[in-house]
Write a protein that binds this DNA or RNA. Structure first.
Lengths: 337, 337
DNA sequence: ATATGTTGTCGAAGCGCTTCGACAAGGTTT
DNA sequence: AAACCTTGTCGAAGCGCTTCGACAACATAT
């Protein structure tokens, strides 16, 4: 293991000079810099992370807490995680992967040990038990998701209320008057991971303004669950002509069942999905959808966090504007007799 | 920030005693231990990770390198990653998330800086450029996946050759004589991520023994790609009655297209999927499948790595035996005229 | 009784780095 | 020519921990 001191000796300078070459915190003459850099190359020197962390009191590590559960949006989570890792690297940070399993203890552990300089939390619940800890520490953090109270917190999320409203508007404009929302699994609502509720709220209130009736049904996803859910919907509201689906694993079952029942998409019923673009374009019908901008969320979270670490940038709630892409699954409501 | 020294003072012992209480590396009298533990509690002490790493030369961090690409098996990757993180914690290790993006440089960086004590690499290619580095260092590592040459390496993977063979056997036993393999996207083969090829090899050689003809077609996944692929298959081999699908995003399209063409599953054609159980049970037909044991792979990888870190356990290739679960998508081959 | 462990604790060194203050050498300003 | 910056470099302190050797205090073997 090559050390700073060895590099210094090899280059004929002092250890501190090498350190300053590395950090750029003091000016170094060109000649010296080059000699040092060359020594670093030749010796294959890598600064020791532990020593650096100890001396500088910064680990250059960001902790990312991902949900343990895999009952929803796994690809989205993965995409966010990868985006976070990738973007963090461009700022010189590495990412420590924490699972939700440890809960608040993980926050304490990481904060207390100086393992990470900052945290990003995913899958934030409305009244998340980790929030008091975050508020009570001076360690910067960013939430992906939106809790009930956001004072003192920095959050990034898709504007799900606007997403819901956007769906309502699109369907209303096409003449639909009775729409059904196929939501996330009941467990997601019980856990109060705000996004599902917020979508629904946005959709409901805009629908009310536009004179559209909304029926909401959570759904586990998968064919069997969807079969039951769909039957209930048509039972209760036979005139339903529009669907908004916020559950990746319900999309394909819904399309298959509609087909099976002889309801053509988009001639008889329209379907909007809230899902990543990839799902929307790979489905059996090219789906009109509101994209979940996973990469963008990861990127923004990192940027806000870096800003906080660098001292600028305070608390802020960054809601990304939803974008609805019209594809082949929505069309004018059928003319009723 | 509370330090060891403060705890020591509070408990009326020396710093080293506190350290030994924490590590258990020397015997401590019950009274002293309790006093120290109480002081730790009261002061809310957390050992500083950097100082610990510097002094002990171990970071208690495992690096996990996940593929950057998301063109395949994302849920599997995620599940493995989570399993790794969870299991690592139970052994007192945290997990550093590296993306494949940095490539071999990441290995160098992590190895050189002592950031992590060991690595787990996912998505290993047959002739992976990171392998020489791993062989050239004394840092323990485990691969998830199987490269072409495994000397000096520890690997965990599903036995994909046996998986292929198992599929062939199941279909042969049911009387199928012409089967098609819907493989991963062409890019996966081009990149030589061995598992796809190994499945195919296992399937082909067992099929030959059993007198079954095999037609292999890579497929991007999604409906459009599947439409083309399926048409080509029936064009070339109209008598195909068995399918093996090794691509999550091709499963549902295949089922839908078969249905659309009036080919009943499993009466007219049988379908076996190589996929996580969740996909198999949530599909529109409950699929006979060979499971991809993501959790188990993550767990095994961590265990092998910990064994190496603890000095016992050398290089080893752990191939998990595949298990085929018969569900509703396979049945006897139709009687030909 | 002496020699020989055992057990529990301490002090001190040192891990590899960052950073502060000092300061020589040279350049500017009066 | 004195006084003052600037620039580039160095030495030393210290970050918070682990770990080694030392050594009392007591127990056991001879």
């Amino acid at each position: 293991m090559v050390t700073l001191a060895e590099v210094a000796q090899h280059a004929g300078v002092s250890a501190s000079t090498v350190s300053y070459v590395l950090s750029g915190k003091r000016s170094i003459s060109v000649g010296t810099r080059q000699r040092v850099e060359q020594s670093i190359q030749q010796l294959g020197y890598h600064p020791n992370a532990g020593a650096r962390a100890l001396a500088s009191n910064r680990s250059n590590i960001i902790a990312l807490m991902v949900p343990l559960r895999t009952d929803m949006y796994v690809p989205v989570m993965m995409e966010i995680a990868i985006a976070v890792a990738t973007n963090a690297r461009t700022h010189g940070y590495d990412v420590l992967l924490l699972t939700g399993e440890e809960g608040p203890d993980a926050v304490r552990r990481v904060t207390g040990s100086g393992l990470a300089d900052a945290m990003i939390l995913m899958d934030v619940e409305l009244d998340d038990e980790r929030l008091p800890l975050l508020r009570g520490t001076d360690q910067p953090s960013v939430l992906i998701g939106l809790p009930a109270a956001t004072e003192g917190l920095t959050c990034v999320d898709l504007d799900f209320a606007a997403t819901g409203a956007l769906c309502a508007e699109h369907l209303a404009k096409l003449g639909h008057r009775d729409i059904a929302v196929i939501g996330e699994a009941p467990a997601v609502y019980e856990r109060h991971t705000g996004f599902a509720e917020r979508t629904l709220d946005g959709l409901r209130s805009r629908s009310r303004e536009l004179g559209v009736r909304v029926l909401h049904r959570p759904c586990e996803g998968g064919f069997d669950a969807m079969t039951v859910t769909l039957a209930r919907i048509f039972d209760e509201r036979p005139g339903t002509t529009g669907f908004v689906v916020q559950n990746e694993s319900a999309v394909e079952p819904l399309l298959a069942l509609l087909r099976q029942q002889g309801r053509a998409v988009p001639e008889d019923v329209s379907v909007i999905a809230v899902c990543p673009d990839q799902v929307a374009t790979q489905a059996s019908v090219r789906l009109t959808s509101v994209a979940i901008p996973a990469q963008e969320m990861g990127r923004r979270a990192v940027e806000l966090l870096i800003a906080k670490l660098d001292g600028h940038g305070g608390d802020e709630v960054a809601l990304l504007a939803p974008e609805l892409t019209v594809r082949a699954s929505t069309g004018p409501a059928p003319v009723t007799s």
